[in-house]
Simulated assay, not measured.
Amino acid sequence: MDLAYYQDYYKLERTHWWFVIRGQLIQRLTKQYAAKNQPLRILNVGVATGRTTELLSALGEVTSVEYESSCCTFLREELAMEVTEGSVTDLPYQDGSYDVVCAFDVIEHVEDHQTAVAELQRVCNPNGLVFVTVPAHMLLWSHHDIVNQHFRRYTRSELTGLFSEQIGKIVYSSYFNALLAGPVLMLRWMTRLVPKNWVRSKAGSDFTILADDSLLNKLFYKVLAAEVKLMPRVSLPTGTSAFCLWQKGAAALN
């Protein structure tokens, strides 16, 4: 990827309604479920242009991992952010190294997602937390998934099922972006009928369709912000994304 792509994506991660709300969700749930012994040792796998690392840094010391070498270069040269180039399927860390292990919209990019989840669990310490988000429902599959190099989208049960092989428990899972799932589905179907470059900018995904200062961007933010306030009291029955928080069993390394 070239510099212009990452500059475009950098802006999206900090201004687009979906990214902003996802960031609030990440902070809210990490504070709720992570161990209270601050500061936390946090591993953030698949950091993209770094916004999730910035958010998690308020909770502890964050180690950032990114697969794409060009993205690592962007982070180092443009943001002066320390990052390790590596893969979620082969993390270069010892067993039980981190209190919180995160992979936000990462494992859908990996063909062997079971190995990816096993690696996240391996480097998590006993009683630590693994926090994963993914795109939901193959019904929503579109050019957005293709350009972002996804292998699949998930139901919530498919996501939680990936965590069944090690000692631990799901402490909370849900869909999110439920209130806008219908409009997003309609948008995905409608954009199949027009040339892709009519509605998308450099990054190429559906995230680029709305300008960050548009009325719809602001409206969608308010709608989804109301939804996040319900969490973690409820688990939403559907949505465009899903997430899972898994706590490692204390006996897992014994």
Rank of each mutant, 00 (worst) to 15 (best):
L224F: 07
R200Q: 08
C71P: 08
E54Q: 13
V101E: 01
F243Y: 15
T133N: 13
L216R: 04
L179V: 14
H109L: 03
W246P: 13
A118M: 13
P232N: 08
G86M: 05
E119W: 02
V65E: 01
Q166K: 12
N148V: 04
T115N: 13
F243S: 02
F19G: 01
D2E: 15
H143G: 12
K202L: 07
Y33I: 03
G128S: 06
C244G: 07
Y175W: 08
C102W: 11
Q38W: 11
F19T: 01
D145S: 09
K218G: 14
A211K: 07
D105G: 08
N148F: 04
H144M: 05
Q7N: 15
L179M: 10
V65W: 01
T155F: 00
N125R: 14
R153F: 05
S57R: 11
G46P: 03
I42R: 11
A116M: 05
A250D: 12
Q24S: 11
G60W: 05
K222T: 09
L216W: 07
V106G: 11
P183D: 12
L40V: 06
R122F: 06
L91S: 02
K222W: 14
T49L: 11
H113C: 12
K229Q: 15
P195K: 14
N37P: 09
W18T: 00
Q114V: 02
D99S: 09
G182M: 06
D2V: 00
P195L: 05
S87E: 15
Q38S: 12
E61Q: 14
L120P: 03
Y172M: 14
L129P: 01
G50M: 03
C244P: 10
G239V: 02
K196N: 12
A211W: 09
S87C: 11
E158Q: 11
A203G: 12
D2H: 10
Y10Q: 07
A211D: 15
L139H: 04
T191D: 04
R233Y: 15
H144P: 04
L236Q: 01
S214I: 04
C72I: 01
V117E: 01
R14N: 14
R152S: 10
